[in-house]
Design a protein around this nucleic acid. Structure first.
Lengths: 149, 149
DNA sequence: TCAATAAAGGACATCGATATCCTTTTTATT
DNA sequence: AATAAAAAGGATATCGATGTCCTTTATTGA
């Protein structure tokens, strides 16, 4: 039910850049980190991986920064999950047993299988573009880390 | 979708002890750790917490060990989850945002809400006794850590 | 009472995720 | 060419989950 912080930072960064797709400028790590209240250097590392995976593009130097490419908006959440959580996030046995699958199920396996599949469906079908919202100011606000209520 | 190793060890330990409920003897950490191929001392720490929570009982000394009590078999998985994962495992925002709930949802919140609730239902309704299986030898085997295929 | 046993408790070690900092490389502008 | 800006890369720090070890406490049986 939980994702790593890396996943949260990655998706929020991608959404922030996607939201500004119509602006001519590129977006720097400094800006993203500040607007989303996310640790600057850690975010840098994560965005590097996101670019390496082809989900976003970037250029160095003056006027450089991050920007969307032809894949960005059509990227399923699942791709980002697999990038940040590792390839067997959905294969991991809930009971920390190494060998557990449908033919060799742990006591919990079948009980959760259906919902696991449901989530996989959602993550596979939901694209970055599906998460964007019209009101930019509101959306940026909703992406920023805020102290718990 | 993932639980800590602590949860896996706790549940498997509880199941192992529950399985042997008809034997007159009490079960030691050494036996559980060996039969389940789980780290001995770490398991000890976890079982201590399980006993403290009242899910199991134990006595020290010669002939001592762990044994089930009136609550054990009727304990819902959710109780064990909350014990090992902390009380807000199901409240954690998937995007690592501090403030996120149904009235203030993050971009992913509503997409997964339904399945989250479904899993909560399962974990709340499934009892330790529901996971026990008739064939003891087979069941113990299915509880033991095995190298990935 | 004494010895053996087993959980309880606490100190410490390790490891991976998270986070920070500094250097290198690339790019645009002057 | 020189400078400034920004990502890329790499070294190190921190923290919590995991794991090990040793001591203390409780219990049984001789």
């Amino acid at each position: 039910m939980t994702f790593s912080k890396s996943f949260g930072y990655a998706l929020r960064g991608i959404l922030y850049i996607s939201l500004l797709k119509d602006e001519p400028r590129k977006i720097s790590i400094d800006e993203i980190a500040e607007k989303l209240s996310v640790p600057r250097h850690f975010l840098g590392k994560i965005m590097k991986a996101v670019v390496k995976a082809g989900i976003l593009s970037s250029t160095r130097g003056l006027q450089g920064g991050f920007f969307i490419n032809e894949k960005t908006l059509d990227t399923p959440l699942l791709t980002i999950i697999l990038l940040t959580e590792g390839n067997n996030y959905f294969n991991t046995c809930l009971l920390s047993m190494r060998k557990c699958n449908s033919s060799n199920p742990c006591p919990l396996h079948n009980k959760v299988e259906e919902h696991k599949d449901g989530l996989l469906q959602i993550y596979g079908q939901t694209l970055v573009s599906d998460l964007l919202q019209d009101d930019k100011a509101d959306f940026v606000k909703s992406l920023a880390t805020v102290e718990a209520a």
